[in-house]
């Protein structure tokens, strides 16, 4: 493989991720306009946001290639957030 071709490879990947981010954003906007139950829209659109955040973290912030310790540092607060949210919202989500 020519050296220039190898050098261009990450750039193509970055452009592809950008396409996914823009596409998922537009999908979220389109879904929010649909006549669906609000809770369904909220959960689906926030799930799309989470996918976008993972794409940015893994590919743009290079967590996919970085040391495992950095992935743990990034995951640490997310685990705490999930614990906190599950405690706060477990009794209220059903009434939303």
């Amino acid at each position: 493989m020519p050296a220039s071709h190898t050098a261009d490879h990450p750039t193509r990947r970055y452009l592809a991720i950008w396409g996914w981010l823009a596409g998922l954003m537009l999908l979220g906007v389109a879904l929010s306009e649909l006549p669906l139950p609000k809770l369904t829209i909220v959960l689906v659109v926030l799930a799309l946001s989470s996918v976008k955040a993972v794409l940015v973290g893994m590919y743009y912030m290079h967590l996919k290639m970085d040391a495992r310790l950095l992935r743990l540092v990034a995951l640490g607060p997310l685990v705490l957030i999930l614990l906190a949210l599950s405690v706060v919202f477990s009794s209220r989500l059903l009434h939303f």
């Binding site: 829209i41 909220v42 659109v45 926030l46 976008k52 940015v56 912030m61």
Partner: peptide, 20 residues
């Protein structure tokens, strides 16, 4: 890294404030 973090925060703020 810092710039991407700022982007991720907005990825969640945008739907919460503008779409729901």
């Amino acid at each position: 890294l810092y710039w991407h973090f700022v982007d991720i925060v907005w990825i969640f703020l945008f739907p919460l404030l503008y779409l729901f």
